[in-house]
Design a protein around this nucleic acid. Structure first.
Length: 440
DNA sequence: TCTGGGGTCCTAGGACCC
DNA sequence: TCTGGGGTCCTAGGACCC
């Protein structure tokens, strides 16, 4: 039997901020995206804020209405990834099968205990075997280990919690779910928020749990799938379990099988260790403008910033890209986009040119509220085979210098001339540098 | 005062090559 | 004379996650 832990941090960004700044502790705080615009939403809310009904994803004005004393804190993604690295280091001590699921979530699969020794067995540095008594046959020991494995894992979970508190900070808490597959482990973890620890030991229990929750409480059923299930007369897992596989396949194609399995607590997906995960597959940025606009210059400036950010990330990862996708959202939330394949590049201007071309092809002059660019088809940078061209070489040198300065002094310290004077929609990491702009 | 931002995966159809 | 099938690349769009 597999034993999998799902570790999920509670109000992650908010607790990290409270850990870092004692004055925020015990207070309702909300984490914003940095630029506090009309249309921004909260990236996280502290427990104290949640008591007022404030939720992640809520608009700022809405949160303020529910909780006027809420303290808004600008998010600091570097700080969060730094903390993430630290807790992953702790988790790695318990099993090499560690999958990083998101910035504040991970799966940990315990190696199966199969070779009992005299006192138990060591897996990494953890001793399993407190239940083993003298006089037990080898076979009995093995089966007792098998039986008590989830219970032992519970002890590991408690230890992980203790270590996170002592090594990262007492304000950082997580919920841990333990089960026999990823789906159920994640579900278990979600059942008890705030320092929770829930075990769903077997399929029998899983089905009991499933019968008590809503369809979209499970990872993999969102609002759309839920609606489509409702249209089929399915409102809970009990009914879903009765639906014939054939019918589900007819409605949902291959996803029908997944839904069929979900209702039965079945999930075969493997824990993919971080060292086996492939590199990123796409890099994108989008921006919702705080008003609806059809001003071409404004749109162009935003697109330039977005593409510049993408190109810098690309170069930081030493990648080049081939496919550019540009899309926008109309006032009524209809979106419209197109993608295009170009020659391998990591140059911001080239990405911009492609995106700009696409935009002009698809845009028919209506007002828009959001614009985004994303690049995919990534591969690692090969030694510059075009650098014999003077123009290419020149641009490379300029780009490299730009990156170095921006990395050191903050985003958009140096930027393209057309961006000067554009609205202050992007935050400056360091406010003292906001007036240090050089035209190039 | 309607609804942010960064990702992943899947399907399906068309073009093109051998 | 118009015709099979596999493989790959490309594009559009939908759905999900945190």
């Amino acid at each position: 039997m597999r034993v999998i832990l799902h570790i999920d941090f509670n109000s992650y960004f908010a607790t990290v901020e409270q850990q870092a700044n004692p004055r925020l502790r015990g207070k309702p705080i909300g984490i914003t995206g940095g630029d506090r615009m009309k249309r921004t939403v909260l990236g996280a809310a502290s427990v104290e804020a949640k008591r007022f009904g404030v939720k992640t994803g809520m608009q700022i004005w809405e949160a303020q209405k529910l909780c006027p004393q809420i303290i808004l804190v600008s998010g600091d993604s570097d700080k969060y990834s730094e903390t993430t690295k630290r807790f992953l280091t702790i988790l790695k001590d318990y099993s090499p099968y560690l999958e990083v699921f998101s910035i504040d979530e991970a799966f940990l699969e315990m190696p199966s205990p199969v070779i009992p020794t005299k006192v138990g067995i060591y897996i990494d540095n953890y001793l399993y075997g407190s239940q083993i008594k003298s006089g037990m046959t080898k076979k009995r020991i093995a089966s007792s280990l098998e039986d008590s494995f989830p219970a032992m894992t519970k002890n590991i979970a408690l230890e992980i919690k203790r270590r996170i508190k002592s090594e990262i900070g007492e304000y950082i808490t997580c919920s841990i779910g333990i089960s026999y597959n990823k789906l159920m482990a994640k579900l278990a973890g979600s059942l008890q928020k705030l320092d929770g620890l829930v075990v769903i030991p077997d399929q029998e229990t899983a089905i009991k749990v499933l019968d008590k929750i809503a369809l979209d409480d499970i990872c993999g059923i969102g609002s759309r799938i839920k609606k489509r299930l409702n249209n089929l007369g399915i409102f809970d897992f009990k009914t879903l379990r009765k639906a014939p596989l054939k019918a589900l396949l007819a409605s949902f194609k291959s996803y029908g099988q997944t839904l069929y399995n979900m209702a039965r607590g079945i999930d075969y997906s493997p824990v993919v260790p971080f060292y086996e995960k492939e590199e990123v597959k796409s890099i994108g940025h989008r921006h919702t403008i705080d008003h609806d606009t059809d001003n071409l210059l404004e749109i162009k400036q935003i697109l330039l910033k977005l593409t510049e950010l993408i190109a810098r990330k690309l170069r930081a990862k030493k990648l080049t890209a081939k496919t550019i996708h540009c899309w926008y959202r109309e006032v009524d939330f209809e979106s419209n986009g197109m993608q295009q394949t170009i020659l391998w590049t990591s140059d911001g201007l080239e990405i911009f040119n492609a995106a700009w071309k696409i935009f002009n092809q698809i845009w028919s002059g209506e007002k828009i509220r959001m614009i985004g660019v994303s690049i995919s088809n990534l591969k690692s940078q090969t030694p510059q085979n075009l650098s014999f061209l003077v123009e290419v070489k020149k641009r490379e040198i300029i780009t490299k210098a730009l990156d170095q300065i921006n990395n050191k002094y903050g985003e958009f310290t140096l930027q393209r001339g057309i961006l000067l004077g554009s609205s202050s929609i992007w935050r400056q990491p360091n406010p003292f540098l906001s007036d240090r702009r050089f035209k190039i």
